[in-house]
Simulated assay, not measured.
Amino acid sequence: MAEQTVQGPDPRDGLVYDMSDDLRTAVEVALATDRPLLLSGDPGSGKSSLAPYHARRNGMRYYEHVITSRTRATDLLWTFDSVRRLADAQAHRGRLNDGDYVVPGALWWALAPESARSRGGLLSPAHHRDPSERFLHREERPSGAVVLIDEIDKADPDLPNSLLVPLASHEFTVGETGTLVRREADAGPPLIVITTNGERDLPQAFVRRCVTFTLPGPTHEGLVRIARLHLRHEKRKISDSVHELVVALADELMRARETAGLGHQRRPSTAEYLDALRACLTLGITPGDPRWLLLRSLTLAKPAEAGR
């Protein structure tokens, strides 16, 4: 009977990551310069997984915001529910506390968590939990914060430029309440990780203010190492047959990437390699199985029309 996996394909829990020396240096440079780390690379190459891994490994608070085409720069700082406030004003006809309608964004929590709890001093902080508490599960007070701003290239071009000042000065003003938010001394220096898939060019003024690093494509050796890391984390026994499966799938992915490159198609990623491995382990598929070629086309060598 095939074994069942114990977690989803992208739990974003920071427990498993293959950290190269070059990437570790890039993180150190970003922290030393107090600049955001702008990560580029193919989809599925592990850009988004770096931030929670660094946070967990170093006992830091962790926040994230996934960018969409509708995201505004202020969404990363705060949002204000003006519709609910108007409805309450019409219903109560009394004086309202604007703090009740302010929701701190990821950067506010990272820079000034005490201010975020109290909505800039407008509310009692006792009733507002730090979102990072769901991630760390630690009793001790974490030092510093990591913020993931994911897929910034999906945003309107004005968004990166609108973030230049708050990212550089570590302060901003909440427009609806006039609250000045500044980085708190006890909050520690943040590591801000910004990812891009290269779907849209970013403003040069924004890129100049970042430490930039491009994750390289997968190698055969790297795929095998990553697979073994995940298998050990999932407490699987890495038998000879499992190792042979890991190697065979790495062979398949590298061949699929080479073929895709010749045809100017999208190359399969490390994430898809792990999908294929989990499917094989769960369904009992091996290289000699009649389903092997179908599995390859479902997970690795996906036809070009699948992306149309």
Rank of each mutant, 00 (worst) to 15 (best):
E305K: 06
L231R: 03
R200K: 15
L136I: 09
R85W: 05
L191P: 03
A30F: 10
V147E: 03
S162C: 08
H264A: 15
A26Y: 04
V83T: 12
V165S: 14
E184T: 07
L159T: 09
S20W: 01
L180I: 12
K302E: 09
G198V: 06
R61I: 09
V27D: 00
F135Y: 04
Q4P: 02
E252A: 15
G105M: 05
R183E: 13
P142E: 05
P11A: 10
A51P: 03
A301D: 14
G46F: 04
L223H: 03
F80G: 07
P189M: 14
R236H: 15
S143F: 11
T79L: 05
P9A: 12
V147T: 04
D42I: 04
T196Y: 03
R134M: 10
T214W: 05
E258T: 06
A187N: 08
G8Q: 09
D100N: 12
P9S: 13
D21Q: 13
Y273F: 15
D289P: 09
L23E: 01
G175V: 14
A301W: 04
R278M: 05
L167E: 04
G120T: 01
L202H: 04
H243V: 02
P287D: 02
G217S: 14
F172N: 06
S45M: 07
S20F: 02
R119T: 06
R225S: 14
E305H: 12
S239H: 07
A145K: 03
E244P: 01
R72Y: 10
D186K: 15
G94D: 10
V165Y: 14
R266H: 09
R291M: 12
V174K: 02
A187P: 11
R12I: 01
G198I: 10
N197W: 00
F172Q: 01
V102Y: 02
L298Q: 14
I192E: 03
R93D: 12
G288M: 09
L159H: 02
V165K: 13
E114G: 07
R129A: 14
R208K: 11
L293I: 09
D88Y: 01
R183S: 13
W109H: 06
H127W: 12
G105P: 02
A168M: 09
L122E: 02
L223N: 07
Y62R: 06
V224N: 07
R183N: 04
T270C: 10
T173I: 15
E221V: 12
L191T: 02
H170M: 11
P190F: 12
L191E: 03
L122G: 00
P160N: 05
A256M: 10
P142F: 03
A279I: 12
R141W: 11
M1S: 14
A256C: 14
A187Y: 12
V66G: 04
A248P: 06
D158N: 07
R138H: 07
S239D: 11
D186S: 15
A306I: 07
G175T: 15
R12L: 12
H230L: 14
P166R: 03
H127K: 12
H127F: 13
D158L: 08
P157T: 04
R209H: 11
L148W: 00
Q4C: 06
K47V: 03
E221L: 03
G105I: 00
D81W: 01
Y17L: 10
D251E: 13
D100C: 11
V193Y: 00
E64S: 13
L191D: 02
L249F: 05
E140G: 00
G175P: 00
R236T: 04
G175K: 15
Y101A: 08
Q90P: 02
